[in-house]
Design a protein around this nucleic acid. Sequence first.
DNA 1: TTAATATATAGCTATATGCTTATATGTTAA
DNA 2: TTAACATATAAGCATATAGCTATATATTAA
Lengths: 115, 115
Amino acid sequence: MLKSTIYVDRAATVLKLLGDKTRLTMVAILKQRECCVCEFLEVFDMSQPSISQHLRKLKDLGVVKEERRGQWIYYSLNSQSDLYGLIEDILEHIPVQTEKIKQIENSNPTLRCGC
Amino acid sequence: MLKSTIYVDRAATVLKLLGDKTRLTMVAILKQRECCVCEFLEVFDMSQPSISQHLRKLKDLGVVKEERRGQWIYYSLNSQSDLYGLIEDILEHIPVQTEKIKQIENSNPTLRCGC
DNA sequence: TTAATATATAGCTATATGCTTATATGTTAA
DNA sequence: TTAACATATAAGCATATAGCTATATATTAA
């Protein structure tokens, strides 16, 4: 398979973004399931604004997309991005985030108030 | 093919390192040929200490190795590293640095004084 | 040994980054 | 409309980073 290439500038930009443990883990989680901010809050030891800022950076580059559903905004990987193939290949080299997914599903923040 | 995975911390560290245009280009060049500092000086618009510092970071993480040959120290990709597979996969997504290789070969800094 | 060349290290500075708290915006339900 | 909840934005701060210049170290050749 012939991969379409990404200019070095753009590739460096996305690698720098993924070169943060929090964001790399977010992307790994999003590869398995979409998440909203309050779900990420369950697995990262940081404030809600920090989570939002990481997601914003990923969104600004087109790595993730968002979709509002009622009160929540769901984030997912943007498979339409020219960066998607690179990101998929990178994710093959890191462990699947099973523990964090479990944590999210056990806490179920979006179901707390019976919505 | 089953890829061995790299812990998220370590993966984030190498992605951050490669998330710099200079270092990413260096690694792309080293995929094609080994180089010494004075050769990199031909293609990057920065001082010799800056080049050396970038190479040191790559060496500290095990991405590149060095080999002294006389006056020169040749840098090459470390194919023994656990990071090598990831790096190869990333490089498939960026253009081959043909122009820079040409620049290096046309200038031939290590041959200037007839060594 | 001395001079020339190649590379590394030290120390400095400007900018970028990631976090925080405080506050604003948007949505739902009473 | 008001309260509660989810998320975003603003502003500030501490640390990290990438570049620079000056200098040290290592090698070669005279």
